[in-house]
Structures are given as structure tokens and as C-alpha cells.
């Protein structure tokens, strides 16, 4: 069947079958391998993508459900070789260890900061509870989210200066 949707800002038309998972459509058919499969049962969040701005587990989402919708994956954040502030923050705080869960965390963070540009640490913890990381112990991830929030609110200059003087 024919499926039309917006993928990372670009209109897309693909043939797929009704049983296809969004995860497989993105990874295997469209080559967006930044989407990861950690469990295939909706428990780990590694396959998180945004559908119309909301975080969705692509392993539990049927491809046909995204007809006419907008999908954003980690590939869509990186434009012209320039890191998105969230990506930048994850690298800077060492919020990335093995990196397998990272695209899912970054997309969940994107959704959080769209809704709440200035979350408290406990709001970040609660929001990210659907994404599992086995490497970091989460502290450096939470730091990354808070730093990304600062960058996106435009406090970037102040942050950089503060970091330089410290």
C-alpha cells in the first residue's frame, strides 16, 4: 500500500504492507539507522521518534499509522553539518557512553523541551523514565538535557562564558 508522510521536513511517499512496523520502515526501507531497536517490545525507548511532535515508540507503531503525519528522527536534527543544541549538549556533558540509547533520549528530550523549555531536574527524570540507559547511570544525561534547555532558551552565551571562567 501507498503511504504518504513528512519525514524530517521532506514529503515522502513509500510502498509498504499493513503489518510493517514504523521501526522497520525507517531503518530498513528508508535507511534511517539512527533509530535503534533495543527490545522490540516498547520497554526501552531506543526506537523513540517524534510523530507530529509527540514521542512514539516506533517498534510498537504500525507504519500505516503515520499516514499524513510528520515524523522527526535524530537524522532530522543535524542540518548542514551543524549539531542541534540537544546533540551538542549530549556530547559536552558526556551524556553519551555507548550511544545506542542516545538517539531515543535525544528525541524524547526534543519533545520535552518543546513542551517545557525550562524543566526542573525532577521533571527531566520523570519525562525520561521511558528511556533506558545501562551505561551512564543517567546523571550526565540529565545534565545534558538541562544544558540543552539553556542553549535553546538562548542562554548559550552566558553558559559558555560561565564554563570558560569556571
Amino acid at each position: 500500500m501507498r503511504l504518504r508522510f513528512i519525514l524530517n521536513g521532506k514529503p515522502m511517499e513509500v510502498d509498504t504492507h499493513s503489518g510493517r512496523r514504523l521501526l522497520d520502515l525507517l531503518r530498513e526501507d528508508l535507511g534511517l539507522i539512527g533509530v535503534k531497536e533495543g527490545c522490540g517490545e516498547g520497554e526501552c525507548g531506543a526506537c523513540t521518534v517524534l510523530v507530529n511532535g509527540k514521542p512514539r515508540l516506533s517498534c510498537l507503531t504500525a507504519a500505516i499509522q503515520v499516514e499524513g503525519k510528520e515524523i522527526l528522527t535524530v537524522e532530522g536534527l543535524w542540518e548542514n553539518g551543524k549539531l542541534h543544541p540537544i546533540q551538542k549538549a549530549f556530547v559536552e556533558t558526556a551524556g553519551v557512553q555507548c550511544g545506542f540509547c542516545t538517539p531515543g533520549f535525544i528525541m524524547a528530550t526534543y519533545a520535552l523541551l518543546s513542551e517545557n523549555p525550562d524543566p526542573s531536574p525532577s521533571e527531566v527524570r520523570e519525562w525520561l523514565a521511558g528511556n533506558l540507559c545501562r551505561c551512564t547511570g543517567y546523571a550526565q544525561i540529565i545534565e545534558a538535557v538541562l544544558l540543552a534547555a539553556k542553549y535553546m532558551r538562548g542562554d548559550a552565551l552566558r553558559v559558555t562564558r560561565a564554563e570558560k571562567t569556571s
Partner: peptide, 20 residues
């Protein structure tokens, strides 16, 4: 605290893992 040399590849979803 040098940034991880593989950090950018990992946050941008480059094909760096076995099954990518």
C-alpha cells in the same frame, strides 16, 4: 574533560553499530 572522539557520530545517528 576532552569530549568523546566518537560523540558526534553517536548523537547524529551515523551507521556505526554492527547492524547499521
Amino acid at each position: 574533560n576532552v569530549r568523546k572522539v566518537d560523540g558526534i557520530a553517536l548523537v547524529t545517528g551515523q551507521p556505526v553499530f554492527t547492524l547499521d
